[in-house]
Design a protein around this nucleic acid. Structure first.
Lengths: 363, 363
DNA sequence: AAGACGCATGGAATCGATTACATCCGTGAC
DNA sequence: GTCACGGATGTAATCGATTCCATGCGTCTT
């Protein structure tokens, strides 16, 4: 593969001049520039990004460490991240932590070794020493979706508490009083926050959230199934299960079916995270939709700001309730303003309308 | 960030000795080794992968260019690829081509600039000059899922023709005679092959495949919907639609629902590519399941073989029909051996059993 | 006409590793 | 006692770029 030396030789100039042409330095004669460009063309020369990175100490690469690629929510996030990064001249290396702190550390270490310019993380846990060290060492970092409390890193996330309140109101209106939740790992912010938002919303309606109605899941489908089976075995099973992510909702659906029961007649179901497939399940699932793409893009912008010397603020976007049929038919009149009622086959392939008005707040 | 020089200084040895310790070169005294390791520990030194790559001309990185990350089939493939690569000491950089040749080229170029050790590609088209040049220049490459005819690159794929035959037999047994297909882009091998397999299987039953029953899709949900609407508008609409991938099947499902029709009563549906969600749709979708994870792993092994100087052969694994309810209930007795009848909620989160006997062939 | 200035250019240092080669030293063979 | 050999180590070249600095030359000022 041709190097800058070959180009210089072919063009009859020094490597310095070739480099100047390539980097659009003004001090190059038109003649030299033309000869260099001709040589570049002839040799099909492409600068070696590895060498360039060594010299400039910039890789123009972002690392993205997510908790689970197989989760459609994170897939969509990753896609948005890559798009925005590409638009800003960066590439992205994705690390899939599979909800495992050890794998997360593996990827963080690997990415740091590769001298990525910045790191986008959706932490699986409360923060490994490695990651804390990286922050302390000044690695540009931004948390997305989940974060680690007490660490001074901008967070780009969505706030679901209003949507959870809407959800609980919706459920109450349908007459449900025994509401349970399948929580995520307590070590993650999304794991604990969603439970608290749910509890607070229930309290507004004077409904308690007994411990028996809080199931401990791990954001994977199998745990959703296991927890739901536990709920169904209770002397007084809940009427509704709210899963803190889409995969656990899937597991809950499995559990209900495996017992020959029906959603929503025997057990109603709602989920955090909306995904295109929820329109097509039997029944379509009522869910809280995050502005996933916008989160990914905002996270990249914040990270690139940080890399390029500016000081980004945290971003919080609002999530939104999307009512479908998995909690029962809303026989009663209209649903209040913030909700969207949706015909199953109304839109495709991206059936969920995104909230157009988003709320931003610095933290 | 500490460099090898800092370590050398701290340990009181030369950088050469540090490098020897790090690379397990035998000619290092126990004493020197201990001092170096202590210094490494104290400084939290990590070798700079960029510098190392420049010198050794190896990045220990594979590039994976896939057609669409949002397609669960490719997501699963990507995950398997990353896992196997990690096991073999490589990292993976994923490029999402979004079924766009220009984006595919962008990623290939980017990956080559970064001097990845090898490239795994699922081409969106018949082969851009860039990719052909890369092959000619000797870049280790392996095609996965799709390939480019006439290019001398190992192919790791699955052969669906037997499964398509099983599917057609299944459909005939249910009494269907008017069968249509939503094809993928003709420029892709999977686009054209699946149509041909379908046509051949139909021929065995004496059923023609008229042009009106071949819809041109692009592997995206919207096209599946559009094509299905076209089918439904026909004076004599088909009784069954076979979508050449899972997203187009989703689009077809939308189209049917949007008209207030039902699957399978009004139109039966089958898909190529099985995904976990097909168990939960209404109705569960009959699909042809590829051994996706195994494909990804085999592809990585082939590529690493090639990188490390061995000469890998192509690999072809068999796909398998998974019967669910979207083509009608099999009121008739048992289905033949190669098919698996599956209870919707039987397994989760990975409801599709993988074929254990695979067939390999060199090409 | 001489000095100052600025543009175009090349030489060489540099980034952080690996590795060929030279050197030094101790041990064993004869 | 001398020589050969091999193990441990350091010096320096190298990978392919970028960039500082010096140089040469043309032009403008005074």
């Amino acid at each position: 593969m041709a190097s800058i030396k070959d180009v210089a030789a072919a063009a009859g100039v020094s490597v310095a001049t070739v480099s100047r042409v390539l980097n659009a330095h003004p001090s190059v004669s038109a003649d030299a520039r033309a000869r260099v460009l001709a040589a570049v063309e002839a040799l099909e020369y492409r600068p070696n990004a590895v060498a360039r990175s060594l010299r400039t100490d910039q890789t123009h690469t972002l690392g993205l460490v997510i908790s689970d690629v197989l989760n459609p929510y994170f897939t969509e996030l990753a896609r948005a991240v890559e798009e925005e990064a590409r638009a800003l001249g960066y590439s992205v290396i994705i690390g899939n932590a599979d909800e495992r702190p050890d794998l997360q550390d593996h990827h963080v270490r690997n990415l740091l070794d590769r001298r990525i310019d910045g790191l986008l993380v959706s932490p699986t846990d409360g923060g490994s020493p490695l990651m804390l060290d990286a922050v302390r060492a000044g690695t540009p970092m931004v948390f997305v979706d989940r974060w680690i409390p007490g660490v001074d890193v901008p967070v780009v996330r969505s706030d679901g508490s209003a949507a959870v309140r809407d959800l609980v109101a919706h459920l109450c209106r349908l007459g449900h009083r025994r509401l349970a939740i399948i929580a995520g790992p307590a070590a993650t912010t999304t794991g604990s926050e969603r439970v608290e938002a749910f509890r607070a919303a229930l309290a507004e309606h004077g409904i308690p959230l007994p411990d028996a109605y809080i199931g401990q899941g791990d954001f994977q489908a199998a745990s959703g199934r296991r927890v739901t089976e536990g709920f169904l075995d209770l002397p007084e099973p809940p009427e509704v299960v709210f899963a803190a992510d889409n995969l656990m909702a899937l597991g809950a659906l499995d559990a209900v079916r495996a017992r020959g029961l029906r959603v929503p007649e025997d057990l109603a179901l709602a989920a955090f995270d909306d995904i295109p497939w929820f329109v097509h399940t039997d029944p379509p699932v009522t869910a809280i939709a995050q502005p996933t793409g916008e989160l990914g893009r905002a996270a990249v912008r914040a990270l690139v700001d940080r890399i390029e010397g500016r000081t980004p603020a945290s971003v919080t976007l609002a999530a939104r309730l999307v009512v479908r049929r998995s909690c029962g038919e809303a026989g009663r009149p209209a649903v209040p303003a913030p909700m969207a009622l949706e015909e199953p086959a109304a839109q495709s392939p991206s059936p969920v309308q995104r909230s157009t008005s988003v709320q931003r707040s610095a933290s």
